[in-house]
Design a protein around this nucleic acid. Sequence first.
DNA 1: CCGTATCCAGCTTGATACTG
DNA 2: CAGTATCAAGCTGGATACGG
Lengths: 112, 112
Amino acid sequence: MTTEPQHLLPNCRRVGDFLERVGDKWTILLLMVLGDRRMRFGELHRAINGISQRMLTVTLRNLERDGVLIRTVYPTIPPRVEYELSDRGRSLKLALAPVGKWVMENQPSAPG
Amino acid sequence: MTTEPQHLLPNCRRVGDFLERVGDKWTILLLMVLGDRRMRFGELHRAINGISQRMLTVTLRNLERDGVLIRTVYPTIPPRVEYELSDRGRSLKLALAPVGKWVMENQPSAPG
DNA sequence: CCGTATCCAGCTTGATACTG
DNA sequence: CAGTATCAAGCTGGATACGG
């Protein structure tokens, strides 16, 4: 056996890849803002200051693909689309809590 | 007032920024490989297949700056440099464990 | 042995304009 | 209202060469 269990590598990749997605510019903020109620696209757009429509769409689609949130389209005119956390999304927020706590306790706040 | 508590934003940024660093291509892998013993630069370089010297240096320096690992230089010839997790680094690994578990249970493995 | 310096390709993000 | 299309700028990571 080497010092490096080979089976750990793909697992680390999976975790790293996911953290990379969740660590992008908007995902954490979006998860926090979404909270525990359904929200519409425009509502999220206003709540997350500075995000472009494009990046909001991309971020939402990524989270939907990961099964973290549920997208519901109402075929009305004008259209209405609502987003909410899935059970999986809620368990993700729970899993992220210790990391958030660690960051608050161990990382300095940004300068300025 | 908006629906968005203003004080949450900087905190989300701190967490998001940190996750972005820790979610880069090599950090998680490095944390796993480093484990609980001191390792030399070349040893890490061999253990993490495919990383360049440059990226190993950059990743190590970032973790050092975050207080996650300790770098010890022995001014011998040839030089010897050892890296080890700090207490803070060990607490980080503990905090990351639930996220790792979540990923294993909720994210499909990469295709191929 | 343990790095640093330089250069470059590709990816990520944002601005802007447009649409059912 | 809730997006999509297009384009440009900046950043990230990797290859390569060199240094104490």
